[in-house]
């Protein structure tokens, strides 16, 4: 049983997510694999105390790559589920402040 707080794993902070947060009012999270849009919406609304307009989900596939300078060792990045949460206009989440 995943509780509400287990759904949102971490905010994803990259150049792209930063742009989305700033200009599109969208916030990006890594979420647990079995979460669905509704659950994510509920989680975000309760944890950050905001109104969510829309949730998009991307399943990020696992990736394999070789370790730098070593052909043998394979590094694997596991798959995760990424949720792009669009807030109602005028509402913000301060990702750096952490969970309230």
């Amino acid at each position: 049983m995943t509780t509400l707080h287990d759904i949102l794993r971490r905010p994803i902070i990259t150049e792209k997510s930063n742009y989305q947060a700033g200009d599109l009012n969208q916030y990006v999270f890594e979420v647990s694999m079995d979460a669905n849009k509704q659950m994510i919406k509920d989680a975000v609304e309760t944890v950050f105390d905001v109104d969510v307009a829309r949730v998009n989900i991307v399943n990020v596939p696992p990736k394999r790559s070789r370790r730098w300078r070593n052909r043998r060792i394979k590094v694997r990045r596991s798959a995760y589920k990424k949720a792009i949460v669009t807030l109602e206009p005028g509402e913000t989440i301060d990702v750096f402040e952490g969970v309230r």
């Binding site: 902070i13 990259t14 150049e15 792209k16 997510s17 930063n18 750096f96």
Partner: peptide
């Protein structure tokens, strides 16, 4: 900073 090209990270990220 992971996730950002060099010189592109915003103030808050750098501060962190």
């Amino acid at each position: 900073v992971p996730g950002f090209r060099p010189g592109k990270a915003p103030y808050q990220v750098i501060r962190r």
